[in-house]
Amino acid sequence: MERTTIDLWVGVFAAAGAAALFGLALKVGNFNSATLGETYSVTGAFENIGSLKPRAPVKSAGVVVGRVDNIKFDTNTYEALVTVKVDKRYPFPKDTFANIYTAGLLGEQYIGLEAGGDDKMLQDGDKFSKTQDAVVLEKMISQFLYSKASETNDTKEAE
């Protein structure tokens, strides 16, 4: 009967649709935000976070080990409080250095962790003791110009 051919076509259609979904998931996309297993959160205070956004990657030695969870502004210290979630599989020492880096010259910003040498490990809810702010391009340029200017002053004085 004709119903069976219809069933066949619907089956082909559903299978192709499912295959396309799998294709999208495996070949086109990645599971960055989905595959973080159990995590622990660590907070860091920064004077300037540049354009860091929630869900930005946290990398160590170039490997993604976690994600930025949320960003708050502390009205007591006038600093940004950034909470990051790090995968439980990657413990870091207590004196780990948290930097805000930029991928390429104009790319997105991420947090880079540089492991220290402490015996004790960071626990859930701890704070990064050492942080380094984002590099702000305008600041860097003005610093560069300022130092150039003072350099020329120095040489003039020397003459």
Binding site: K27, V28, N30, N32, S33
Partner: peptide, 15 residues
Amino acid sequence: FWSQMQASVDFKEDI
């Protein structure tokens, strides 16, 4: 082509 695509298309956020 494929690796850049995979690096920036997120399953949850996009697909």
